[in-house]
Design a protein around this nucleic acid. Sequence first.
DNA 1: TCTGATAATGGAAATGGTTTTCACTAACTA
DNA 2: TAGTTAGTGAAAACCATTTCCATTATCAGA
Lengths: 157, 157
Amino acid sequence: MPRGNCQGQGWWHGKFKGCGYRLTAGREAILDILSKSEGHLSAEDIYMKIHSRYPNVGLTTIYRTLEVLSNLGMVHKLDFGDRRARYELAEGPEGAHHHHHLVCTDCNKVVDYTDFIDEEVELLRETEKGLGAKYNFQITNHVIQFYGLCGKCSGKK
Amino acid sequence: MPRGNCQGQGWWHGKFKGCGYRLTAGREAILDILSKSEGHLSAEDIYMKIHSRYPNVGLTTIYRTLEVLSNLGMVHKLDFGDRRARYELAEGPEGAHHHHHLVCTDCNKVVDYTDFIDEEVELLRETEKGLGAKYNFQITNHVIQFYGLCGKCSGKK
DNA sequence: TCTGATAATGGAAATGGTTTTCACTAACTA
DNA sequence: TAGTTAGTGAAAACCATTTCCATTATCAGA
């Protein structure tokens, strides 16, 4: 994790500059894709989408950029149990809707839900505060996920 | 995921038999290791520990057994962001202490915490019920994890 | 605007945890 | 006890992600 924890300034031009990162076409392209398509893209998904419009952005750059974005807290890296990471934009400038995930362990279908979110977030905030103090952690993120079988998969026995 | 969802019978001999799995030395060895050492073992950790006492249990068997155990709900498969899965025994027969995890994104140190667990579990139970009904999911497991920098890592800037 | 320092890039090769293959062995059922 | 078939180990395959390295591009300062 290079350059310490640079979180919570303005939106991303400023964020990048402020942390000593350079602004490049590839990075803009990746952020562009992420903000236009919604949820749960793998590095390769992004690569494909980018490739038609920016044919000279390599997979390596995608991975590197996603790591940077993740370090900056602008992107969440998710694990749904198939063996590839998924990425989604964290709340944007206009505060996208916070949500958590419900994952089918059989077909890997993922449901974003916002039900109960307020209670969850409230408890999480409390917990975060408590844990941070007790264990001397500077908490920056959390994951809540439920796993089970979706209707289709539990149906097929 | 073979053999559907066989969860919630007795303890493990019965569980295995009931689901059509056979009882083998390797499987006993793995369960033995898991119940004796605590928390967060990778497949290779288990392999090492097993190898001294049961030299003819291969890594492949470890992986296969862990998958079975995970399907049976006897083991939780965890992801702490380094790229290897960790496994820990789910609540044993005498109800081991339920806990969640606090992970340092820099050094990968993991803290098991039980603070706030009651509130968390309570909310989770509610949410689980609600989500299960609304999205027609048969929920079997959940993950809550907090990520951040531990004292040591946030100190070194 | 030009320029130098160095961050960023992309393609290819390496990595390494996990899965698959396959021939063999051992559990369990009848 | 025998037959069926689940389980096994070793080696090979897999494949998402990282690393290497020579080249290019960004940007701060002159």
